[in-house]
Design a protein around this nucleic acid. Structure first.
Lengths: 207, 207
DNA sequence: AATTTATCGATAAAAATTTATCGATTATTT
DNA sequence: AAATAATCGATAAATTTTTATCGATAAATT
């Protein structure tokens, strides 16, 4: 098994994977040179990134696309599917429930939960929405370790506490609230405004 | 004006800003030490990041929160509000239309556009959804430079081309498609599955 | 008023990441 | 069959980023 994939490389691997899945050369070969120019990355960087998951590149031709795809998938751990639940079935929660990309990458959003009884029993992309009361038993029964928080900021900490109490180990936080968690619990904050601001920053720099 | 903010620091600045806006010490001071421990970052790193936008820290007490907030905002360019449009009024598009965080950061999502006439005329969070035909004139009239793509992958390139044709300079791509754009156009890809996979990666590493 | 404590800001060291270079290898061309 | 061209993979150099150290300073304490 390949190891020592740097943090930043790890962020680029899915980009390669994603791109490889869309190209016409699906049944042939692709070189690091071509890949680099298509994705606007450095040729050497691409080669180095790929070296961390593959050693099947052949001089003059490059990498077999099929092989590379499965090597990337396996390196990224997409083989072992991971289950997660979503708390908050507003538009964002529903969008994530429906997001096809997850399945493709081996993730499985099991269900959504919401306080509002109007959405109980609804399904989105085949995923059901339940009452909050059902959360503890479902998490326990299915040994779920990942919780996705898409509730308003005000309710986020409360929801987070509930998740942690019930054995969740990683939280993906879409609310703007800053979450306090005990040691050992991983929080990843997804702040949409931050992402957009980085885009704008870039825009104003280059003029 | 402060300069030379490193790329990675630039990604952390909004985190500080976001956190500062939520704390109880709003009217007082906060030290890099405290900020670091609250956000689980290195003390020196925080101090260095802040040094790139501020020089108002006082020994023994830290930084005045109010001052720091406005210094961060100005460094990040949140003074000059930026307008954007969203193409694709599915759940994700609707969620972004409704996302309150943007306004807070000085962004303004002007409107959504969709091919499906069932959603035309709807509003979400006060933002209207229009037919695609209205896109060119609105972009031109309001001088909008940012487009957010939340359509399915199949339609993404077509939408992207349309945006570019009409003068959009930056694209925030939520679809899984890889977009080809002319030089000078900035594309930022938001792959939800990537974010989740990084979370999971971290989870499986630390066990 | 002197001493202690907490923190800044700067500089230096360490670590991580990117970029450059180059020999080895494989297909293609002569 | 030999020469050529393209590309890999490895190693080295350059750059960027993170972490450590330390004197200076402002508030708190003695």
């Amino acid at each position: 098994m390949h190891k020592d994939i740097s943090k930043v490389a790890l962020q680029r691997l899915p980009v390669y994977l994603n791109y490889l899945k869309t190209i016409p050369e699906k049944d042939g070969f692709i070189s690091a040179t071509v890949l680099a120019s298509r994705l606007n990355l450095g040729e050497v960087q691409v080669r180095k990134d790929l070296a961390s998951v593959s050693c099947t590149g052949k001089p003059k031709v490059g990498y077999e696309v099929k092989t590379l795809i499965s090597e990337l998938e396996s390196a990224l751990g997409y083989d072992n599917t991971a289950d997660a639940v979503i708390i908050g079935a507003g538009h964002l929660g529903m969008a994530l429930l429906d997001y096809k990309g997850f399945e493709e990458y081996g993730f499985n959003i099991v269900a959504g939960f919401d306080r509002n009884e109007k959405v109980w029993g609804k399904t989105e992309g085949g995923k059901p929405v339940f009452a909050m009361e059902k959360l503890p038993s479902l998490i326990a029964r299915m040994h779920i370790k990942i919780g996705i928080i898409t509730v308003p900021a005000k309710a986020a900490q409360e929801v987070c506490d509930l998740l942690v109490e019930n054995g969740i180990l990683a939280v993906w936080n879409f609310s703007s609230a800053h979450l306090n968690v005990p040691d050992g619990i991983l929080v990843r904050n997804e702040n949409m405004a931050v992402s957009l601001s980085l885009l704008v920053q870039h825009l104003t720099d280059n003029k």
